[in-house]
């Protein structure tokens, strides 16, 4: 269950401001690519365009070398912030993607997933009665269960404490090893990129243009030393990009 995702020369203006100014990016089948960039640089916008929710002014989104379908649905987006349906219970929320994909035993599999993501006992709770971190786990479980070949994750671990985040990183790495989805992961956290991603791209401030790929030693799972190196490279790239953004 994977596909190649390629973004080619994406340009998008929102009102007066240019948000995307020619973004090129390829994620190989089954690969995890992290995109790191300063707040407001256009990361969420890029995912919207990739998901087919917002048509670009120029450029295109390609899946496995062909044009991506106009209609959203092959790329599962986990948006930034809350995205559970408030009127559905946790288990029903987790099952949504699978139901829509026509998975026959969606309800049973959703209950399994709820346990796997550490939410057992809360199946019948509504989202407002869960913590922010629990809601994010549920959204992640929903994305995984939807069975899409490409996952677009917008800061999926943003609302978690450090320990839970580390635990969930390990679990998610397991899930990815098993399902081999193609993942584009937006994050603010250089550490997270170092732990989870095969490749790391860094964007400058808005508008997002050419992305800088940082050197990444070792394949995953990385040693602490290799992770520290990745983090340093990411920070260096961010600083350099920031300087470019200022003088431009």
């Amino acid at each position: 269950m994977s596909a190649e995702l390629a973004l080619r020369g994406l340009v998008l203006g929102r009102g007066e401001v240019a948000v995307l100014a020619g973004v090129d990016l390829t994620v190989a089948p089954g690969e995890v690519v992290a995109l790191v960039g300063p707040s407001g640089c256009g990361k969420s916008t890029l995912l919207d365009v990739a998901a087919g929710l917002v048509p670009p002014d120029a450029g295109e989104v390609r899946l496995d070398g062909g044009p991506a379908p106009d209609r959203p649905g092959r790329l599962a987006l986990m948006p930034q912030g809350d995205s559970l349906l408030p009127w559905r219970t946790l288990a029903d929320n987790v099952a949504v993607g699978a139901r829509l994909a026509g998975v026959p035993d969606a309800a049973a599999r959703a209950r399994e997933a709820v346990t796997r993501y550490g939410l057992a006992g809360f199946e019948d709770h509504y989202p407002h009665a869960l913590s922010g971190g629990m809601r994010q786990r549920a959204a992640l479980a929903r994305t995984a269960l939807a069975g899409r070949p490409v996952w677009l994750l917008d800061e999926p671990f943003g609302a978690l404490d450090a320990l839970t985040r580390a635990e969930l990183h390990a679990e998610v790495a397991d899930v990815w090893a098993r399902l081999r989805p193609t993942v584009l992961l937006v994050t603010h956290d250089p550490d997270e990129a170092a732990v989870l991603a095969d490749r790391v791209l860094v964007s400058g401030p808005r508008p997002m243009g050419r992305l800088v790929e940082v050197a990444v030693p070792e394949a995953r799972p990385r040693t602490p030393a290799a992770r520290a190196a990745v983090r340093e490279h990411v920070m260096d790239a961010l600083r350099a990009q920031h300087a470019v953004g200022r003088t431009a």
């Binding site: 087919g52 349906l85 677009l152």
Partner: peptide, 24 residues
Amino acid sequence: ATLARTVRTLGASRGWTWWHVTVP
């Protein structure tokens, strides 16, 4: 709008999205 967009990427049709997200 985020809710509607999310279920759209999970494969929901416009009609499904209207009935299960917009109306509730």
